[in-house]
Simulated assay, not measured.
Amino acid sequence: MGEHRAVVGPAAAASVAVVLLVHALVLRPRMLTWGATSEEVARPYPGDDLIAGAQSGSTMATTLPAPPSKVWPWLVQMGCDRGGWYSWDRLDNGGRPSTDRIVPEWQSLAVGQRLTSVPSGLAWFTVAVLVPERTLVLRDDTSVPSGRPFDPADGRGPGAFVSSVWGFHLEPADPNTRLVVRTHGRSRPRVLTGPIDLLFWEPAHFVMQTRQFHNLRARLCRAVTGNPGRP
Rank of each mutant, 00 (worst) to 15 (best):
E3S: 12
A6K: 12
A6Y: 04
A6C: 04
V7R: 15
G9C: 13
A12L: 15
A13W: 14
V19D: 01
H23N: 10
L25Q: 09
V26S: 07
R28P: 01
R30H: 15
R43C: 09
G47E: 01
I51L: 14
G53K: 03
A61I: 09
P67L: 05
V71N: 03
W74R: 04
W74C: 05
C80A: 14
R82E: 07
R82M: 11
W88P: 00
R90V: 08
D92Q: 09
S98I: 12
T99Y: 01
D100E: 15
P104F: 00
L115V: 08
T116H: 14
V118H: 07
S120Y: 03
G121A: 04
T126F: 05
T126C: 09
V127I: 02
L130I: 05
V131H: 13
T135C: 10
D140V: 01
T142F: 01
T142N: 05
P145Y: 04
D151M: 01
P152L: 01
A153G: 15
G157S: 04
G157Y: 07
G159N: 09
G159L: 14
V165F: 09
V165C: 10
F168N: 13
H169E: 00
L170T: 04
E171M: 13
R182F: 00
R182H: 10
R182G: 00
H184L: 11
V191W: 14
L192I: 14
T193S: 10
D197L: 13
L199F: 14
F200L: 15
F206H: 14
F213R: 12
R222I: 00
A223T: 03
T225A: 08
P228C: 04
P228K: 05
